[in-house]
Amino acid sequence: MAMKYNWDWSIILCRSPEEEPTAAVEPGTLAPDATSAVGGGAGQFFDTGASCAQPYFDWIVSGVSWTIIVACAAWVITFSLGSIIGIARTVDQPVVRAVATAYVEFFRNIPLLLQMFLWFFVVPELLPEDAGRWVKRELPLPEYWTAIVCLGMYHASRTAEQVRAGIESIPRGQTQAGLAMGLTQFQVYRHVLLPVSYRIIIPPLTSDFMGIFKNSSVALTIGVMELTAQSRQIAEYTFNIFEIFTVATLIYMVVTLIVVTVMRFVEAKVRIPGTIAMGAD
């Protein structure tokens, strides 16, 4: 591959202050060859530690942290709300089912980007005056809260479908057996349907979590400085677009891999003896 580009990893790893201004101003002149930069840069990073002034590494750390915080917080909403909606779609009461179905259809069919804008720009205007003012003026980090709520509620519609599918995959006889021994409908869900269906849907729930993790990058459109946003900002400062987006890609992949590995472990841990696990995808 005949690439004209001079890879320069030092912008991320090299943290010595004197290199920074040039790197930002004129990236082309500064590129040492890639191999030595990786090794040397890493060494320098660990050597100079906190004393350094170069901001890019910190920006990435901050971006990764926000990505993880936003994704995890959104997932809490997704999991709890998605479970409630998914369960509601399987109960006997038609009204409850209809409301849950409406939720799923609404949030699933509007593009995430548009939902992000709706939550950020439109919803505060629709709130009662006091609440709206509070959101706009006093709520700290409004874009972060918005992103969390938006991602959480968007993905809840998907998780709800997984939960519903999981419950519906359990033969009716199980419910009948539960009811026949005197359990209430609530108890049948609590002790029979949910423990079994959550085990079944661990793989799709894992994919859902990864979806939230990746979609958290959409939050950059309303100003959340997560990993993708930070990468773009560094790219703009340094013009080292290849390095920085490669690093971002790798970070997304590593976190994804960790999640998959952890979930495989969880799945094996809760596997019902005598049955075969389906494996996370």
């Binding site: 033969p171 006889g173 199980q174 009948q176 057996a177 539960g178 009811l179 026949a180 021994m181 005197g182 359990l183 209430t184 002790h191 029979v192 423990p195 079994v196 085990r199 019902i272 049955t275």
Partner: peptide
Amino acid sequence: PKLRSRIGMVFQNFELFPHMTALQNICLS
């Protein structure tokens, strides 16, 4: 639920709860 709890029912496909041991199945209700 109370009425049902007084009549035992046994199904063609057993309908034991798969995530519980035999003992737990019997203890649950």
